[in-house]
């Protein structure tokens, strides 16, 4: 009904665009995962090995083992983390109606990472004994609540820039706390960088097994929420008049966001800016309908991280480069450009 009015493009063209985007995205993702199954290997591996693997043939035994035991879980983790962060970013932007909202900028990722590092100090034994996902979930929750209150998200018509500034300050606070915890836990302080720059270098199937169920739950919830969030985009009063429950949407969305972020941080550490970049790129192609954005964003988030990890291994400065140094460099540039654009739109 009224929803249609918000779309800038007719529904039919939109459908085509969505179809093309999702098809291209999936093809790219498949290619990217296939590529990353052998790229930058010490062994002479190639598409042949991937083909052997897919067809279940007996190829070179070691190559098959490598694909099955290290490359595939790594690619799936990268894809899952990318999708989870991008979805979390989309939900945050929709929920706060703030184009700069994202897991890393609002400090939620950093909160999860801090919980992770704090558990490593062993100061509170029962906290260290929790499963990693539970630990990061608690951290992300605390950070989320802190952002909600400190950044003033509970207020009506709060200035978006104020929210972003407060979020960044919180992010900084959690990063500093994480550094302190790492120095305390590690006594040598060498780990600081490796803890704070996300990486999928040492993942195995157990990480995939934690990540993907959480991602699937998060995805289903996101699909469900996308209808409500579309209403919310029209304004809170409009949403209420159409029978949506603001409180319910907020709570459920917050839960989904925290779950997705916790899952991705527990696997790859705090990877910055993916949750910011992907929703914006997708919106440029697909428009603002959140129902369409949810699958697109997930697929392109996965794409981004799979390719970024492969490229980091190929062209990075050393061997075994954490993918985070690439994504945060380009992500920060994107953030700067986006800020410039948003600020000009708001003030000039």
């Amino acid at each position: 009904m009224t929803r249609v009015a918000t779309y800038s493009t007719p529904a039919q063209t939109m459908g085509w665009r969505l179809f093309i985007a999702i098809t291209c995205g999936l093809l790219m993702l498949l290619f990217g995962i296939g590529w990353s199954l052998f790229v930058a290997s010490e062994f002479e591996m190639g598409w042949v090995d991937v083909a052997h693997f897919i067809l279940g043939q007996d190829g070179e035994m070691i190559h098959q083992h490598i694909i099955k035991e290290t490359r595939l879980p790594r690619a799936l983790s990268a894809a899952g983390v990318g999708a989870a962060l991008a979805l979390a970013g989309l939900l945050m932007q929709a929920l706060t109606r703030n184009p700069l909202a994202s897991p890393s900028i609002f400090g939620v990722s950093a909160g999860a990472a801090f919980a992770f590092a704090f558990a490593a100090t062993g100061l509170i034994p029962w906290f260290s004994a929790l499963p990693i996902l539970a630990t990061t979930f608690i951290g992300a929750c605390i950070a989320g609540v802190a952002v909600f209150f400190l950044a003033g998200l509970y207020q009506q018509n709060v200035n978006p820039i104020r929210v972003v500034l407060a979020g960044i300050a919180l992010n900084y606070l959690f990063i500093s706390l994480t550094r302190a915890a790492v120095i305390f836990a590690d006594e040598h302080a060498y780990g600081v960088l490796h803890w704070l720059t996300g990486s999928v270098g040492n993942v195995n199937w157990s990480h995939v097994n934690t990540l993907w169920p959480a991602l699937l739950v998060g995805f289903v919830l996101s699909v469900y929420l996308s209808f409500q969030l579309n209403l919310l985009a029209l304004g809170e009063s409009m949403m209420k008049s159409l029978g949506g429950s603001l409180w319910w949407v907020r709570t459920l969305a917050a839960f989904t966001i925290v779950l997705l972020i916790a899952a991705s941080v527990s696997v790859a550490g705090p990877l910055a800016f993916i949750g910011l970049v992907i929703p914006h790129i997708c919106r440029a192609f697909i428009g603002t309908d959140i129902r369409l954005l949810v699958p697109t964003v997930a697929i392109f988030g996965a794409n981004l991280l799979v390719y970024a990890d492969a490229l980091a291994q190929l062209y990075g400065p050393g061997r075994e480069n954490p993918v985070g140094i690439i994504t945060s460099l380009f992500g920060a540039l994107f953030f700067l450009a986006l800020v410039r654009w948003q600020v000009r739109k708001a003030y000039v």
Binding site: E42, E69, R71, R319, E320
Partner: peptide, 11 residues
Amino acid sequence: YVRTTIERLVK
């Protein structure tokens, strides 16, 4: 000192 993954270790 060279950091390694299991893949390089096998190599």
